[in-house]
Every structure is written in structure tokens, then in C-alpha cells.
Amino acid sequence: MTDPELVAQIKVGNEKAFRLLVEQYQRMVLHTCLGFVQDRNDAEDLAQEVFIELFRAMDKFRGESGLSTWIYRIAVNRSLNFIRDQKRRCFFQSISTRLTGGTTVDVADQSWRSRPDHEVENNQRRANLYQAINRLPERQRVAFTLSKLEGLSYQDIAGIMGLSLSSVESLIHRAKLGLQKQLYQCYKKGL
């Protein structure tokens, strides 16, 4: 079944078509969310929310952009909202821990530590890498993540982000420079 056929079937309430859509795009959505939130459980939860939103908003899809572009857009927006909410939660959490005199806990770091199947060295590299990515300005982070983690073309990223091709090229170029600079600083510290 092609994408327009899938959309048409879902719009008339065909449950099998929705299941097909989920099966077809679940890996893509999960990987996109993982690229932003870096925690498997959070990413899976977010990916499910993406499909729920897709199902509810299917009537609004007019097919002006490709179905995958639309799905990517929802996944990216959901992930960014999640990160913003998490930052807000962390902010209030840090205030409450300061008030109660407790110690602060690095949530992202904890999530990587909970993975038993990785060596200490790679854990450190991974922590440095995602810390550097998360420090990038939001648009640079989105463009870089879609390019590097999803392997999307600059043209596709431009469609998802609603930007021109040259803007995407510039964002990714700056993201790479920023990332390399931060990774070099981490490398020098580790020597």
C-alpha cells in the first residue's frame, strides 16, 4: 500500500491501515526521538505519542508534503517539547533540592550509566558527545541530528524544518564546527 493509499484508508477508519503505518514508520520515529532524548524508555514513549498525534490529526494531512516529512516534523516537535519540559522540570527540581539541601542528580548521565553493555571509555565518549550535541543551538541540533543520526539529505531536512537548502547547509556546517570544538575541549581535558 502506498503512502497516499494508507492515509486515505486511515481517514476512513481502517485500523489495519493504521497498523501498517505504525509498522512501516515505527523504527524511523523511534530513532528520531532517540536522537534527541537519548533515553530508550522516554524515546519509546514519545514515539507512541507521535503515532497517537498522527492518528488524531490525520484529517488535517493534505498531502502537500510527503507523509514521512510530516511524521518527522511531528517527531521532532514532540522531542523538542519533551526536552523543554525536562529542562523546566530540572530547573524546579534543582530549586527544590537547593531549598531542601539535597544533592543534584544528572538525569541524562544516569540514563547512560544504567546501560550495562557498554565499556567505561565509550560511556565517557557518549556522555561527551551528547552533552556537546545538547549544547548546540536548537536549530543546529535538529539539522545535525536529522543529518547524522537519520542520514537524511539536506533537501529532506529543509522540507522538515521549513528552511531553504542553503540555511540547512549553514546550520549543519556551524553545528559540526561547534561540536568539534566542544569535543576537542573534552579530549584535551581527558589527556
Binding site: A47, F55, L183
Partner: peptide, 25 residues
């Protein structure tokens, strides 16, 4: 070092959705 670090980005592509992904939705 840069190569080893950036290679870790490929890890995300190895993750598969859980068995009850659709059922949860």
C-alpha cells in the same frame, strides 16, 4: 578520538521498538 566518538551515533540505529509497541498505542 573524533572518529570513535562520532561512530557512537550509529548506535541509535540498532534500537528496535518493543514487542508491544503497537499494542501500547
Amino acid at each position: 578520538e573524533l572518529q570513535s566518538t562520532l561512530c557512537l551515533l550509529e548506535e541509535n540505529k540498532q534500537h528496535e521498538p518493543g514487542a508491544y509497541f503497537y499494542a501500547s498505542i
